[in-house]
Amino acid sequence: MGRGALATRVLGGAAGLLLATGLYLGLVVAPPDAVQGDVQRIMYVHVPSIVTAYIAFFVVFCTSILYLWKRDLRFDALAVSSAEIGVVFTGITLATGMIWGKPTWGVWWTWDARLTLTAILFTIYAGYLMLRAFAEEPLAGARYGAVLAILGFLDIPLNHLAVYWWRTLHQPSSILRPGGPSVAPAMLLPLAVTFAGLALLSTYFLVERIRLERLRHRTAEVRLKRGRRG
């Protein structure tokens, strides 16, 4: 086994270990919330998922700018790989949020500003992936995709501030807020451990997804060479 493959396996194993610890801390060790009761435990997967998705989309945003600037396909490979991971984690956020909403708010879904903007975020980057998959000219797809990814990222600060700008059902941030987190340390620990696990897992996914993109580029090169030779 090569060093790269071994490092990827270690990364995956560490992610699994941290996620199992986070699961134990969130479901067994952490106390139930004084107001919401046990159902608040869903937050230990919901919150780390959206933070992971935001980081993935930030990577897409930066690498898309770099791609448009340098026209280096390595940046594009990183962008498309990270976008896919961001979409997976945004999907998990939406699903777990809906499941938490039913016993807490009494509805699975409401057109609240935070929820709507998260659904829009999911749609923008799912659209980005479709654009990349169906573009007839790959370089044009990469260019248009980069523009869409940069514009789509504007949804994130808007989403973060939505709970302050509009009257929303969704509570304001409990962690990323001025004055520091308002969450009890016993609840902060499972959030932090699960986030660390998801961050490692998303890095593992990213490494594997970039590997796939490299293989696709290599395949396209071989096909092109073969075409030239006739």
Binding site: V39, P103, F205
Partner: peptide, 20 residues
């Protein structure tokens, strides 16, 4: 409550393993 918790964690697990 634990039914909703199980559903949320189960769905997240299926999504991550499915993607892998």
């Amino acid at each position: 409550n634990w039914g909703f918790i199980g559903l949320a964690y189960g769905l997240a697990f299926v999504a991550l393993v499915g993607y892998l």
